[in-house]
Amino acid sequence: MTTTDREHRSFAVERHTVNEIEVAVQRAGSGQPLLFLHGGSTAPGADFALRWAEHFEVVIPHHPGFGLSADDPGIRDMRDFVPHYLQLLDDLGISSADVVGHSLGGWIAALLAIHSPDRVRRLALASPAGLRVPDHPTLDILRLEPPVLATKLTRNPQLLFGSGEPSVDAIVAGYRESGSLARVLWERNYDHTLQRWLHRVAMPTLLVWGRDDEVTPVRQAEAWSARLPHSETLIVECCGHLLLNEQPDVADAITAFLLGDGPAGP
């Protein structure tokens, strides 16, 4: 496979056991490791990440309780993901990685960077959840019926459900993932840890946001950048919460940032 035949590239799926929980890890490419932490649903997929495989060794674990990974009844709190991912990085022999996180995955990535800044080389947060911004609160997604939620998540709901009526398999898989989400954010969809400790995230950080995000409103970007020591913000026009799926070129902007030498910026 050459670095230019983007169309033919695909992920290999590996199984790893992290603290007795079997998790699936999609991998592609080679180079500096890039850890991508997905959002609260695996339904939209991560085809955009194949673009990163041209430059990086892309590692996409499915969170416990999501996608092809097993459930972990021990996870009760967002902070439980931190030791989980530190263990996975150890098991994969990755001492430090560029980390990209979307939505819920952005929240996990930020917690990881707060806890172990030495394991995160550069950080890209795509419409991250988790910060409490009272004037521009995160949508209470667990309150909404899935078809309504889909219209809030993206300008193109087909990304989530395809066309037509969803199959029983798709409904069950979606319900399972919403249950896994509820485990960690039924009580509240933010974490006071972030606003108190984001100043520890000292590595170059890119914030990417869709202008029309109805889940984590774009105005939240200001609250993140005010707390991050070295960040810059890229706003993507005509774009909702699922920005990497809606506009895969966003992945290229993240690549440029991660490859850059400067403090931040594509």
Binding site: L142, L144, I171, V172, A173, Y175, S178, L181
Partner: peptide
């Protein structure tokens, strides 16, 4: 009421939901 309210996330197992849907 709605099935959404009837079954909040995680309230039943995915297998139980599948049995109901089928």
């Amino acid at each position: 009421t709605s099935n959404h309210y009837r079954m909040p996330p995680g309230y039943v197992s995915p297998a139980a939901l599948r049995a109901l849907l089928e």
